[in-house]
Amino acid sequence: MKHVKAINLRAQALEARAKGELPDIYALQMQLPMSCSTVFDPGWEVDGMFGLAGLCQPMENDLYGCSADCWWPAQVPDELVNYPGWSDQCSAAVRDWQKIKFIQGGP
């Protein structure tokens, strides 16, 4: 899948890293959803080049774009299926981010 590999900026960065510095480790996963982001589609935790400048600024603006559509279901409660109504108490995240609930496992 060479053509896919080329799009996958973060994977490329990782592979380059892996080749140079950590020869035995194929990918550093670290619970990062590696290579999720492309330049115009911000990743949750890191952008295509191991940075954060390519992400939504600030991330609170994009938070419900993630939750409403199960875009990052391992990091953000998805409201489509698993955690409906999660954002109801705080509609404008950038203003009221302290009200956003953290969900620790469980039902």
Binding site: H3, V4, K5, A6, I7, L9, T38, V39, F40
Partner: peptide, 14 residues
């Protein structure tokens, strides 16, 4: 769109 890159440089393009 992001293009995966040409066969020579592999550089991504928008």
């Amino acid at each position: 769109y992001v293009e995966g890159g040409d066969p020579v440089t592999h550089a991504p393009k928008i």
